[in-house]
Simulated assay, not measured.
Amino acid sequence: MDVVTKVFVGLHIIGIASLLGGFLTQLKPMSAGAARFVPAMLHGALTMLVTGVILVGLNQAQDHSLNNIKLGVKLAVLVVILGLVYVKRDEEKVEKPFFLAVGLLTVVNIFIALLWT
Rank of each mutant, 00 (worst) to 15 (best):
L100C: 10
K96L: 08
M30R: 02
A40G: 14
Q62R: 12
L100W: 03
L27M: 06
L115C: 08
G52F: 03
A34K: 15
V53K: 00
G10P: 07
R36V: 05
G10Y: 14
F111W: 14
G52L: 02
L115V: 07
L46Y: 07
G22S: 10
Q62N: 09
M1L: 15
L42I: 03
L75M: 04
L11K: 03
V53S: 06
G72A: 12
L55C: 10
V50C: 07
G44A: 06
M30P: 01
P29L: 03
K74R: 06
V73D: 06
G10M: 14
A45Q: 04
L115T: 05
V94I: 15
N68M: 11
I14L: 08
A32K: 12
A17Q: 05
G103D: 11
A17S: 09
E95K: 04
W116G: 00
A32S: 13
L78W: 06
G33C: 03
V80C: 10
A32N: 15
T106M: 11
H64Q: 09
I81R: 07
T51R: 04
G33L: 04
A40Q: 14
V3K: 10
L49N: 08
A76L: 12
A17F: 04
L71G: 04
M1R: 12
M30T: 03
L46P: 05
V102K: 10
V94K: 00
G57C: 09
M30A: 08
D2H: 14
H12Q: 01
K93Q: 07
L11G: 15
I112N: 06
V80T: 06
F23T: 02
K70P: 02
S65M: 10
E92T: 15
L19K: 05
K70T: 13
P39I: 07
G33V: 02
K6L: 14
T106L: 05
V53M: 13
